[in-house]
Amino acid sequence: MGVRKYLVAVAAVALVASGCGGGSGDSEFCSGSSTSGCTEVPKAAAKEDFCAAGAAFSGSKGFKNGLKAARRLAAVGTPNDIEASARAGFVELVERMVDSKDGPDFRGRTRNLSSAESKHLLDLDTYIQATC
């Protein structure tokens, strides 16, 4: 299962739930050490837990369910062998979903990614393909 499936699933969630609210708008996740106002994503997830949380996220239906699954992803975190760029893609993906107010807001946040964000997502996809 790849990040493309994650993105397609979440984009579908956003389209279906374009009128629903649910994002907190005030969460900030970080891939490094915790700082004020920042929730650190764990770095020692079991690969099985990482893959299961990803499967639940990609299979979620409706914005609120996608949001709940994204929060679970953040709580599970990433395995310790993930490369920094792939981990950044994971954190960025979760943050975009959790910080979105609703489906249209999420869609807006997924447009026009920077070249670094695109690279991070591709690296995450490669990691997921090899791990899950």
Score class of each variant (00 low, 15 high):
residue 49 D to R: 06
residue 24 S to A: 13
residue 112 N to D: 08
residue 80 N to M: 06
residue 18 S to C: 09
residue 88 A to I: 05
residue 67 L to A: 04
residue 90 F to P: 01
residue 23 G to T: 03
residue 119 K to V: 06
residue 27 S to N: 09
residue 5 K to F: 08
residue 65 N to W: 04
residue 78 T to P: 03
residue 52 A to R: 04
residue 48 E to N: 00
residue 56 A to F: 05
residue 67 L to W: 00
residue 87 R to K: 08
residue 26 D to G: 06
residue 92 E to G: 15
residue 89 G to P: 04
residue 114 S to A: 09
residue 80 N to P: 08
residue 23 G to L: 02
residue 101 K to N: 04
residue 111 R to L: 13
residue 123 D to L: 08
residue 66 G to C: 03
residue 37 G to C: 12
residue 129 Q to K: 15
residue 27 S to D: 13
residue 129 Q to F: 09
residue 4 R to P: 05
residue 94 V to D: 02
residue 68 K to W: 00
residue 87 R to L: 06
residue 72 R to C: 06
residue 82 I to V: 08
residue 10 V to S: 13
residue 10 V to Y: 12
residue 89 G to V: 03
residue 51 C to L: 09
residue 76 V to W: 00
residue 57 F to W: 03
residue 83 E to C: 13
residue 118 S to V: 11
residue 37 G to R: 15
residue 77 G to E: 02
residue 118 S to R: 14
residue 71 R to F: 00
residue 4 R to V: 12
residue 12 A to G: 14
residue 31 S to A: 14
residue 63 F to L: 00
residue 91 V to K: 07
residue 88 A to V: 08
residue 4 R to T: 14
residue 67 L to Q: 01
residue 76 V to A: 02
residue 81 D to Q: 07
residue 52 A to E: 05
residue 101 K to Q: 05
residue 73 L to W: 03
residue 10 V to N: 07
residue 18 S to I: 06
residue 43 K to E: 12
residue 61 K to G: 07
residue 88 A to Y: 07
residue 115 S to I: 06
residue 40 E to Y: 09
residue 94 V to I: 01
residue 109 R to N: 08
residue 10 V to H: 15
residue 15 L to I: 12
residue 76 V to K: 00
residue 79 P to E: 11
residue 10 V to F: 15
residue 87 R to A: 11
residue 89 G to Q: 03
residue 119 K to E: 15
residue 16 V to A: 14
residue 86 A to H: 03
residue 120 H to V: 05
residue 131 T to S: 13
residue 51 C to S: 09
residue 84 A to T: 11
residue 31 S to W: 10
residue 104 P to E: 09
residue 108 G to V: 04
residue 49 D to V: 07
residue 7 L to Y: 05
residue 99 D to K: 03
residue 93 L to K: 05
residue 21 G to C: 04
residue 115 S to N: 14
residue 61 K to R: 15
residue 118 S to F: 12
residue 8 V to W: 13
residue 61 K to F: 10
residue 26 D to F: 09
residue 38 C to N: 15
residue 10 V to G: 05
residue 108 G to R: 04
residue 48 E to I: 00
